[in-house]
Simulated assay, not measured.
Amino acid sequence: MDRDTLNVSQRKDDGFAYEPVERFGASMTSPRPWNTQALAGVERLNGRVAMLGFTAAIAGELLTGKGMVGQLGALLQWYLG
């Protein structure tokens, strides 16, 4: 077996400490604690992007007089037609 076919967790010569390879789906049931600070930042960003998207949908509805589905249909009709 040559070096390129080795699993990344088996490489010890690059100086990087890889996490051990888990079986598929094991990370969802792992007893290891979550990185709550990183999750809080990600969830805050997701919330802000969702608020921005909702605001854009409302602004589009006020400008066009069509709901979100109507705006999507108009966009597809413009793009395809």
Rank of each mutant, 00 (worst) to 15 (best):
R48F: 08
L62H: 15
P31Q: 10
M28S: 12
R32P: 07
L45P: 00
P33S: 08
A50N: 03
S30I: 09
G73M: 14
T64V: 11
G25D: 02
V8A: 06
L80A: 08
A59C: 10
R32S: 09
G25R: 01
G67R: 03
R23D: 09
G25C: 03
Q77L: 15
M1H: 10
E22R: 06
Q10E: 10
L80R: 12
R44E: 00
K12L: 06
N7D: 13
E19H: 15
P20L: 05
L72I: 12
K12S: 08
D2I: 00
T55D: 07
Y18L: 01
G73A: 15
V69G: 09
V49F: 08
M28A: 14
G73T: 11
A57D: 12
A17Y: 08
G53Q: 02
T55K: 11
T36K: 03
S27E: 07
R23H: 07
R23C: 09
M1G: 15
G53D: 05
V69K: 12
E22A: 11
R48M: 03
S9L: 05
G70N: 03
G25V: 00
S9Q: 06
R48E: 14
T36Q: 04
M1A: 15
A74T: 13
R32Q: 07
Y18R: 12
L45F: 09
L52K: 10
S27Y: 05
L76Y: 04
M28Q: 15
E43P: 01
V49D: 02
M68K: 10
G67P: 03
T36F: 02
G81E: 04
G65D: 07
V21E: 14
G41N: 07
G67A: 09
T55A: 12
L72Q: 01
F16Y: 13
M28Y: 15
Q10F: 04
R32G: 09
R3N: 13
G70P: 01
L63W: 04
M68P: 03
R11D: 06
A74S: 06
Y79M: 13
N35T: 04
V42M: 04
Q37K: 12
G41D: 02
S30P: 00
A59G: 01
R11C: 05
D2Y: 06
T55G: 10
W34S: 07
W78D: 12
G25Y: 00
Q77R: 11
G60S: 05
A74K: 08
P20G: 08
D14T: 13
L63G: 07
W78C: 07
L45T: 10
A38Y: 03
S27G: 02
F54D: 08
S27M: 04
A59W: 01
R3L: 14
A59L: 15
M51P: 01
I58E: 01
E19C: 13
A74C: 13
